[in-house]
């Protein structure tokens, strides 16, 4: 039987190392957006917590457990990255596993790279590990989460993967050129 072949959003584009930085695709096996219905937030959060060990994140925060990362992605909505959630009754649950290009930018200078593209303050005192922001990268809507001191996770629309890689690579080159 004929089989369909999978292709990740950044296939053929990444990884790239420029200067002291690396940009690599970090595709999650599953991504699911959840948006609790009215009055259901606590119950949904509790259900998540009992399954994954972490609940529904507060705005601009991302929660990490050994199985999933749950990242706030907008008003009353979060993305469960890693595993598909159990059946949740009190929330709109939507499979987004294929909708996002997810990349990780890591290395000394990563903050400087993002400072060339992102109009919000991502410096460490303001934006610590597991802080997240829905913002712009160039002209693109993205979700940015700090993973650790020198690593950021960036999610952009799948169709814009090429532009995402181009913008980040150019900024990496600019930062590297300054030495």
């Amino acid at each position: 039987m004929v089989k369909l072949i999978e292709k990740t959003p950044c296939a053929g584009l990444l990884p790239r190392s420029i200067g002291l930085m690396t940009l690599a695709e970090d595709a999650y096996p599953a991504m699911t957006s959840i948006a609790p219905y009215q009055g259901q937030s606590r119950q949904v959060s509790a259900a998540l917590k009992s399954t994954f060990g972490v609940g529904f994140p507060s705005p601009n925060r991302s929660l990490l457990s050994d199985r999933v990362r749950i990242t706030w992605i907008g008003q009353g909505a979060a993305m469960i990255c890693g595993e598909a959630p159990p059946t949740l009754t009190g929330a709109a649950v939507t499979d987004q596993s294929d909708a996002w290009a997810v990349v990780r930018l890591t290395g000394k200078g990563a903050e400087d790279v993002l400072a060339r593209l992102v109009p919000v303050d991502l410096r460490r005192p303001q934006f610590r590990s597991n802080h997240t922001a829905r913002t712009l990268l160039g002209h693109m809507h993205v979700s940015i989460t700090r993973i650790d001191a020198k690593t950021f996770e960036i999610m952009a629309m799948r169709s814009m993967a090429q532009t995402l890689v181009h913008e980040l690579s150019q900024a990496m080159e600019n930062v590297a050129a300054r030495g």
Partner: peptide, 13 residues
């Protein structure tokens, strides 16, 4: 109204 909307344009080919 108790309703949620989410874009799935990019999810489906």
């Amino acid at each position: 109204l108790d309703v949620q909307v989410a874009s799935v344009t990019e999810q489906w080919a």
